[in-house]
Amino acid sequence: MSAAVAAPGARPARSSGSLPAIVGAELLKLRRRPATWVLLGLWPALQLVFSLVIPYISYTRGSSFEGIPPEQVLTSTLPDRLVANALSGLPLFGGALLLTLGALLAGSEYGWGTLKSLLGQGPRRTTVLAGQLLALVAVLAATVVVSFALTAAVSAAIAGAESAPADWPGAGELARGFGGGLLVATTWGALGVLLGTALRGTALAIGLGLVWVLAVESLVVNVAAPLLGFFDALQRGLPGVNAGSLVAALAGGDVRTPGVVAVVDGGQAAWVLAAFLAAASALTALLLTRRDLT
């Protein structure tokens, strides 16, 4: 251990890790954390099961799927439906999983008392948040890519087995699908981070987040909106409704996943989601910088 200690003032007041170094640290944390793998692995897995595996099994049995005749069921699993099949789960169960991930990441820093350790090493609070959000975006991007890759592989296998046409979507459609999927995923993740930070813990944040995604939004959309004009207007501003609308637009309007409803058009949905993402990040930064850390 070195005995040399600089005189006060000899070193800059704030020497700490750069943003890339902090993103690297956050990626290390994410990589080593089992919960990351469970939550991020579950989403493409469920996606695959519900958009390809179950419809294909129902087709091979010659039965109709959700009232759709077998031939059309097969068509829906083929490569040209890649974007729809890779993203259709994102607004609902994907949202629930990613909101949980965000809440877990932010909330457990309070439970473990690790936030004070991170800040104790010198970075600004906003730099810490930026590093954490960027690392989250990076793993979400990787997960969206994995979802596309898995869906593509299984679709290609189905097309091969059934000697059906393998028409892949164009590069533009894929890029829009990736971008839109990442926007939806990041918005859910950031809303989870906001909840975990606001509530300074995981349990309540996850609970409230899940009730919102799985119950409140669907009650507003299915029960309240048809009855009252106010709720009809309100639903157009909900994150889940906009996520569903964006995915439906990217998928060419033909998505039968429950919870995915095209209420607003795709462009508007993208803007609303971006606004949610920006607001969640800004509010988290505000909470983080304004509050005492005890």
Partner: peptide, 19 residues
């Protein structure tokens, strides 16, 4: 603002249990 030269352990070690 002088965090560069201060090392601290406050109210127990805050570290990641899974690491």
């Amino acid at each position: 603002t002088s965090v560069a030269q201060v090392g601290a352990l406050v109210e127990g070690p805050g570290l990641y249990p899974y690491l």
